[in-house]
Amino acid sequence: MEAISSVSGRAYPFGRKNIDTDIIIPAKWLKTISRSGLGEGAFETIRAEEGNIFDDPEYAGSPILIAGDNFGCGSSREHAAWAMADMGIKAVIAPSFSDIFSSNAFKNALLTIALPQEAIDRLIEVAQSDPIHINLENQIVTTDFQDRFPFEIDPFRKNCLLNGLDEIGLTMQRDDAITDHEASLQQQHPWLVPAQ
């Protein structure tokens, strides 16, 4: 995973609630066997709307998306995170995220930052004309004005993101503990995890 410590730049003032992963990337794009190139299909049905922000030159290439409650609900498709990363988005700020989406985003160094609705409303206002700054180390979102919005993040995830750690590599170092667990399961419940 790529290390990430801050994101700074313009933001799409999107704001909509309950954006499901079928909206982020429709199923017809899921037939790929690669992780790249999905940006083309990102938010396809929204891009079909007249005057949508994703095709507005004002916001082209913005690294931040500001959304409404329950962002990323529905399907577990990681293609949603891949598609957003492919279109250059590095962080999403919303009042809440679906559990699976925020996990998928984390694995791709795409920050999901939960802030209260009042903060979202203010950031959407700022995003119309000015940049937004996210500092992961200090866990704070700021603007060029007086705004300061602290956010929470799981310490393990923060550490992985700041240091670009490979989670699978980390877990593989715990192989002895996993093997011990398997051995105890084999004793307790031989039907559950058979001996190899």
Partner: peptide, 19 residues
């Protein structure tokens, strides 16, 4: 349900890191 990175994690380690 899990994403594809977690699918890979389970394939490699038979575990997941979860809160």
């Amino acid at each position: 349900g899990i994403g594809t990175s977690e699918v890979e994690h389970v394939m490699a380690t038979q575990t997941l890191l979860l809160s």
